[in-house]
Amino acid sequence: MAEFLQHLLNGLMIGGIYALMGIGLTLIFGIMNVVNFSHGEFYMLGAFGVLTLFTFMGVPYVLSLVLTAVFFFMFGSVIERLILRPLRSQPVEVPMLATIGLSIFLANIALIIWDPTPKDIGMPFPLVAVQVGPVSLTPIRLFVFFAALVLIAGSHLFLKYTTLGTAIRATFQDRDAAALMGINIDVVNMITFAWGTAIAAIAGGLLGPIFQVFPTMGAAASSKSFAVVIAGGLGNFPGAILAGLLLGVAESLGAGYISSGYRDAIAFIMIIVVLIFRPTGLLGKSRRLG
C-alpha cells in the first residue's frame, strides 16, 4: 500500500508537468491551428536556461525559473511573429513543417552551446525527505507538483475571468466572429504561442533538477506532450490536464510494477487505447476551452 501511494504521488508530480506541456500544445493547436513540433525543444531550452542561471551563475532557483519564463515568453512572441504569422494563410502542414525545422535547429544550437553530455542542475532544495504517513516526499518533488498546480490553475483563471482570456476563448470558438468584435487575432495568436512556449520552458526548468539535462531531451518531451493532447482531445484544455495526470500516474505505476523499461511505451499505449475507445478524447467532445 505504501509503495502504491509512493508511485501514485510520483506519478502525479510528473503528470503535473505533462499536463503543463499538454495545455500549451493543445491551446496552440486549438487557437492557431498549428501543430507545434518544437514544444519539446522549448522544454529542453527551459531546462538549459535554469542550468545556466542557477547552476552556472548562482542565481536563486525560483528566480531562475521566473527569468527563464520571461525570456521564453519573449522568444515565443518572436517565433510567432517571424515564422508562424507569415505562414498563417498556408495549409496546416506548412507551419507544421516549419516547427519541425525549428525543433531540429534548436536542438543543434543546444548541442553547439552545451555539448551532448548530460548535465546535472543540482538540488535547489535540501534533500531531506518529508515523511507523510507511509510515503516520503522530497521538497523538490513537492515544489514541482505545487508549481505545476499553480500554473495550471493560473492559466485557467486567466482564460476564465480576464477580458483577454475571454477573447482568447472567443477566438478559439469562432475566429471570424471574434475578429468582428475587434479582437486582434494576431495578438491572440502571439500571446497564446508565447504563453505556451514559456510554460513549456518552465516545465523543463522544474523537472531539470530531478532528471538530467541534455540537448536531445526534447524529443521524448514532445512525444509525451502529443500523447497528452491526443488522449485529452485536440484543443481540449481540461482534457489535457486529465490526460497529463493520468499519463504520469500510469507511467509511474507501470514502471514500478511491470518494468521500468516500459515507462516510455505507456504514452503510446495510452494513445492507442483512447483512440480505440474514445476517439474524440477522454472527455468526449473535442475542441473545448474553459
Binding site: 475571454t166 476563448r169 470558438q173 471570424d176 466572429a177 471574434a178 475587434g182 479582437i183
Partner: peptide, 29 residues
C-alpha cells in the same frame, strides 16, 4: 470596429461556449 462599425453576422455566430454575459462583454471588447 473601433470607428464604431458593428456587424451582426449571418447565422448569428454567437460564441457557443461563452455565457450570455461573456458574449455581450466581447461586443464591448
Amino acid at each position: 470596429v473601433k470607428l464604431g462599425i458593428a456587424q451582426c453576422p449571418e447565422g448569428r455566430r454567437v460564441f457557443p461556449d461563452l455565457t450570455v454575459v461573456e458574449n455581450l462583454r466581447m461586443g464591448a471588447y
